[in-house]
Write a protein that binds this DNA or RNA. Structure first.
Length: 284
DNA sequence: AGCTGTACCTGCAGGC
DNA sequence: TGCCTGCAGGTACAGC
């Protein structure tokens, strides 16, 4: 489900609700989602810890708890974190229930169970798989045009490169396709072959699309909802994702679907040509 | 080094 | 109605 804008929206919606609450206990109905420590230890250690704050890094949510402890959550494809007063509507996809001292609760739902949870001390965040290898946040100052230029100097397919979390943290399949469409770059292009002009366009498009999507509170294609159970709005702005066969909003060419990096990839063959686009008639 | 295929899970839509 | 196939926002890992 969730890429950077969705996780950011969940973080913001939950933050106001659960900050400074004390976790009375946790009920676990699907143990395999807990990656560290052992389930019994997890239950024991989280008990009576207070939530000091909530952070996001890439697609990871990090609950800052008292006693230098961190609850790290990755939502996988279909994970949801929903806060509410008791009694909560529970179903077979509810796998964890965090009970707070004031009788409110946070539930973790996940249809496909690809999500993961870790409970680690401050110095041990590197033991959370994937977290330490994350590249810079695309909306931070750390993500400069210069840095982007360096990672683009690879003979890698651009779609693959943008999906790799070690290059850039937080992009997923929807936003990569949408970004490449808006930048007019074919997902099949080799990164190192992009012209300086295309690199700059792509850099600014990444930031612009993500900012727009955060402002729209994320994309709800199938089952994404925020911490209050509300849907996002960016699905109304999608121009290629899941539109195969439908006409391009710019040139009316049918949108194509291919498989790249193992993912369904949507693009307009005319607006995103395989040859570097000239912009103003300059042929390459 | 870069990339593909596969695995992990469940649900849904579409074809027959 | 049922059965089958393909598709789905995630990552990890083996193997070319």
């Amino acid at each position: 489900m969730p890429e950077l804008p969705e996780v950011e929206t969940i973080k913001e919606s939950l933050k106001q609700r659960i900050s400074f609450k004390k976790i009375k206990e946790v009920e676990i109905f699907c143990a395999k989602l807990i990656k560290f420590p052992e389930v019994l230890q997890f239950v024991k250690e989280i008990k009576n810890k207070k939530i000091k704050g909530l952070e996001r890094r890439g697609k990871y949510l990090i609950f800052k708890l008292t006693y230098n402890t961190n609850l790290v959550v990755h939502l996988g494809m279909t994970g949801q974190l929903i806060y509410s007063d008791l009694p909560l509507p529970i179903d077979k996809h509810t796998h964890l229930l965090f009970h707070f001292e004031d009788n409110t609760a946070l539930q973790y739902r996940d249809v496909r169970k690809f999500g993961c949870l870790w409970l680690v001390k401050d110095g041990c965040l590197r033991f959370v798989s994937g977290l330490a290898q994350l590249g810079p946040e695309p909306l931070s100052q750390e993500f400069t045009l210069e840095y982007f230029g360096n990672i683009l100097d690879k003979k890698s397919i651009i779609k693959y490169l943008l999906l790799s979390q070690s290059n850039l943290a937080g992009l997923g399949n929807i936003y990569v396709d949408e970004i490449l469409f808006r930048a007019g770059i074919s997902p099949e292009r080799v990164a190192a072959d992009l012209t300086p002009r295309e690199r700059e366009k792509l850099y600014h498009t990444i930031r612009w699309v993500l900012e727009e999507a955060v402002r729209a509170r994320g994309t709800s294609v199938v089952n994404y909802i925020d911490g209050d159970g509300k849907k996002g709005n960016y699905q109304d702005s999608l121009r290629v994702y899941r539109r195969s066969g439908e006409l391009c909003f710019i040139c009316s060419t049918p949108i194509k679907r291919i498989v790249l990096a193992g993912r369904g990839t949507y693009f307009c063959p005319k607006c995103q040509p395989l040859i570097p686009s000239s912009g103003r008639g300059k042929k390459v």
